[in-house]
Simulated scan of single mutants.
Amino acid sequence: MSINLESLSTKELSELISKANLRKKVLAKRKPANQVKAAVAKFLKSTGWTFDELYGRAGAPKAAAPAAEKQPRKTTKGRSLGKVAPKYRNPANAKETWTGRGKQPRWLAAETAKGRKLDEFLIK
């Protein structure tokens, strides 16, 4: 974060200095990080836990959830369903196909609007 001190008024500078002094006091009251880490490690050792077990670091074994508790996904947002073979083909243009997923392509919507059945476009 950079602050352009040249653009600040006297009042703004005074507020900034007072906020900085408050932050400095808060930081001065804190114990050094290595002391806190040592105290946490000592406490965890006395309880039989490790930091990795409690907070899940990479490589730490994770507790497997029972299969009965897992809920099936209700949405496919954020994951791909994979490739699917096309089910429908445009007779006028063999390159135009549709898998049956998602919104109907324009050519198929136009043909079904004319009264044709979807089954007529199935790839055999």
Rank of each mutant, 00 (worst) to 15 (best):
A28I: 02
L8V: 01
N93C: 06
K45T: 08
L16M: 12
A109T: 10
G102T: 15
W49R: 09
A20D: 02
R79Y: 15
V26K: 06
S46H: 09
D52A: 15
K124G: 03
A39K: 09
K83A: 12
L118P: 00
W107I: 10
R73L: 15
I3E: 06
K74G: 14
T10K: 15
S2H: 11
R106Q: 09
R116P: 01
A39G: 04
A38N: 11
K83F: 08
G59L: 03
A33N: 03
T75H: 12
A94C: 05
W98F: 12
A60E: 04
K25P: 00
A92D: 13
A94N: 08
R106P: 03
P61T: 10
E53R: 13
S18A: 12
E53F: 05
A109R: 13
L5S: 11
E96M: 14
K77I: 15
S46C: 06
K24G: 07
R23W: 03
K45F: 08
D52G: 15
G100Q: 10
Q104T: 10
T76A: 14
R23H: 09
S46Y: 05
M1P: 04
K124Y: 02
R89D: 00
P61S: 04
L16G: 14
K29S: 05
E120R: 05
F51G: 04
A33Q: 06
R79E: 09
S14R: 12
S14I: 14
A109G: 10
K37C: 05
L8H: 01
P32H: 03
K124F: 01
W98K: 04
P91S: 12
V26H: 04
Q35C: 05
L22E: 04
G82N: 09
N90Q: 07
G78P: 02
L44T: 01
L8S: 00
K117V: 04
W49Q: 12
E96L: 14
K103A: 14
S14M: 11
K42R: 11
R89K: 08
E111K: 05
P32K: 06
F51Q: 12
